[in-house]
């Protein structure tokens, strides 16, 4: 089981005046059963990268390995459907994919496509809707009558219902209220820890990266700038400065305290830091 990018290039609109090289020589290993964040400036190729994972975009050159699936550039790929069952992808604006007349039907659409019988699919749909924090009263409503954030949740539920091993989310919390965003991130973390799923998520929120992710991949102008564990990434201020990224609040607090000669190493949450400060000041 592994996810490997080997020297992957991707060019949009090849041989037209709009030709654009979006990915350059991507060499990347994604650790399984971990939560990996993909960050980078807008236009750095994050969405392009994640769309490779379930074969929506096929590499212009290079090789991609996802579990036992091997995709080579310029070789016709068969049975992408089974890859898509394994890798669930939630798009950047997934609310546009809703179409059924009721929410339950829309969520059950995915599993049914993969051959799950109707009543089973409905059962999974109900459970998925609950997972994303919407109650049963929504089941029969039209997905088109929901608010943006609710649509987002339904769309995510639609992917969860497929029960993929690898879950890929492109900015799943953009546009959600802070409380909703937190719930979603906790859900993804839980899917990882309890259900052993590999989670990849694109995000711009460093707090989320710090609090919920194990590894981080930094994209820059179509290239992988860095692939490391979250802790190493935030410890190393040179990276953050070079990328112009503001570290999470807690890291900045720790750095400030360090500058005031208060040693808080080993404290990872706000309470232990407080205790330490109180102790130091006594």
């Amino acid at each position: 089981m592994s996810i490997e990018f080997k020297k992957i290039d991707y060019t949009y609109s090849v041989n037209t005046p709009f030709q654009f090289v979006a990915l350059k020589q991507i060499d990347l290993n994604i650790e399984m059963n971990k939560v990996t964040a993909i960050i980078g400036a807008t236009g750095s190729g994050k969405s392009t990268l994640v769309q490779h994972l379930n074969g929506l975009i096929l590499p212009t050159s290079g090789q991609l390995i996802v579990n036992d699936f091997v995709i080579n550039a310029n070789v016709k790929v068969r049975n992408l459907k089974s890859l898509r069952k394994n890798v669930g992808l939630v798009f950047q604006f997934p609310e546009y994919q809703l179409f059924e007349e009721s929410i339950i039907k829309d969520i059950a659409f995915g599993p049914k496509n993969f051959g799950v019988p109707e009543d089973e699919a409905n059962k999974i749909a109900k459970a998925s809707l609950k997972l994303v924090g919407l109650d049963e009263s929504y089941l029969e409503k039209s997905p088109l009558d929901l608010s943006g954030g609710q649509k987002r949740r339904v769309a995510i539920a639609g992917i969860l219902a497929m029960e993929p091993d690898v879950l890929v989310l492109d900015e799943p919390t953009a546009g959600l209220d802070p409380q909703g965003a937190k719930q979603m991130m906790e859900l993804f973390k839980k899917l990882n820890t309890v259900h052993n799923k590999t989670v990849l998520l694109v995000t711009h929120d460093m707090e989320h990266v710090y609090n919920y992710c194990d590894n981080v991949v930094v994209m820059k102008k179509g290239e992988v700038f860095l692939n490391s564990s979250v802790n190493t990434f935030f410890e190393n201020t040179t990276y953050l400065d070079e990328l112009n990224i503001l570290a999470p609040n807690i890291i900045r607090l720790k750095n400030m305290l360090k500058n005031h000669n208060i040693d808080v190493s080993g404290c990872d949450d706000i309470h232990s830091i407080c205790d330490k400060i109180v102790k130091e000041l006594k």
Partner: peptide, 23 residues
């Protein structure tokens, strides 16, 4: 837009190339 929605539905198992007529 069509391309994007096609991709989103393909992610949910819609197979316009290999599937059966009803699908």
């Amino acid at each position: 837009e069509t391309e994007r929605i096609m991709k989103a539905q393909a992610s949910r198992g819609v197979d316009l190339q290999e599937g059966k007529i009803k699908e």
